[in-house]
Design a binder for these strands. Structure first.
Length: 325
DNA sequence: GAATCGTGGAC
DNA sequence: TGTCCAAGATT
């Protein structure tokens, strides 16, 4: 049973705000690279970021490593077996703690994710908007969970929400609970869960600079340790992730070169749209040193264009590089 | 409690 | 194209 906890935990972390289809190849890759929690705990930070690159929400990857090291360092390589203990570990919040405890350790705690919130707010026609309603959902569900196999009940509710009780056009006629569903009885199943209106996303602008040597080496650098895409790899850009920057001109280039306008990349993050103007320049292979002594170039390195899979490049940067080639 | 934090697929 | 949203956590 304990052997499963690592896999349950890994999958639940990856599945936070992420679809099963997107997670699957990453989950398999991680299990191949690091079959157990001790393997992961001893991995290099950079190797984990490279393996996670493209999956998004990169603080999950940093917390994943912190958590693995805590399990090895503080719990002798065994995950704690209750939700309350699990939730003290990095990256494990109320949902993940409950899911791991219920599925791997049969801890009878209510597991409440977005699917369960939707199913239960419909069953009870809860008018309270999310995220307030979350505690009402947990309270309504908890009495059902002191069963012999709480993990199965959790899985059942989540699967129901992921299939029949979908956000739009739920298939109520096939639902095993429709006779008990207040929202269905009222013919208002699509109105739940009630949510507060969302704010419109602003658009930020910036410029990205792709510097390529004749021998197919590209200049990369590391982002800072906090904020958006923290600790990930990038090509030089303007300071687009800070609110005030909107510089899109080649004038912002980090060094002198024959910059060519390569086009524009659009990318949408959780809370804003981004439009990056992409500029590219070629350098002769003889130039082995740092392109310039500019501050914005700071530290960086040359990387082979054929080996970008070994870099911790978020998908935004892959788009930018593809645009410049 | 509200903001922040990625990405890709569905409609 | 725009919007929603997917097995949330952190600050």
């Amino acid at each position: 049973m304990q052997a499963d906890a690592y896999r349950v935990w890994l999958s639940e972390i990856m599945l936070q705000q992420t679809t099963v289809a997107a997670v699957k190849p990453y989950y398999e890759k991680f299990l191949t690279l690091w079959p157990g929690v001790a393997d992961l705990a001893s991995a290099e930070d950079e190797a984990v970021m490279v393996a996670w690159a493209g999956l998004g929400y990169y603080s999950r990857a940093r917390n994943l490593l912190k958590c693995a090291r805590a399990v090895v360092g503080e719990f002798g390589g065994q995950f704690p077996d209750t939700a309350s203990q699990l939730q003290k570990l990095p990256g494990i919040g109320p949902y993940t703690a409950a899911a791991v405890a219920a599925i791997a350790f049969r801890d009878p705690v209510a597991v409440v994710d977005g699917n369960v919130e939707r199913v239960v707010t419909r069953l009870l026609a809860i008018e309270t908007p999310l995220p307030q309603a979350k505690e009402l959902v947990r309270g309504a569900l908890q009495p059902l969970f002191p069963t012999g196999r709480p993990g199965d009940l959790a899985q059942a509710f989540m699967d129901l929400g992921a299939t029949l009780c979908s956000p739009k056009r739920p298939t109520c006629s096939l639902c095993p609970l429709h006779e008990h569903c207040q929202a269905y009885a009222d013919g208002q199943q699509e109105r739940f869960p009630v949510k507060l209106p969302k704010l419109k996303k602003p658009t930020r602008k910036g410029a990205a600079f792709v510097l390529i040597r004749d021998d197919q080496q590209i200049w990369l650098q590391k982002r800072g340790p906090s904020g958006l895409l923290a600790d990930m790899t990038q090509v030089p850009t303007t300071n687009w992730s800070s609110r005030e920057d909107g510089e899109t001109s080649v004038d912002a280039s980090p060094c002198k070169a024959d910059w060519q306008n390569a086009g524009e990349v659009r990318h949408t993050f959780t809370h804003f749209h981004l439009e990056l103007s992409v500029y590219s320049a070629r350098l002769s292979s003889g130039r082995k040193t740092t392109p310039a002594s500019s501050e914005t170039l700071a530290m960086g390195w040359w990387s082979d264009l054929d080996a970008l899979n070994d870099e911790a490049l978020p998908n935004l940067m892959r788009k930018v590089i593809a645009c410049a080639l």
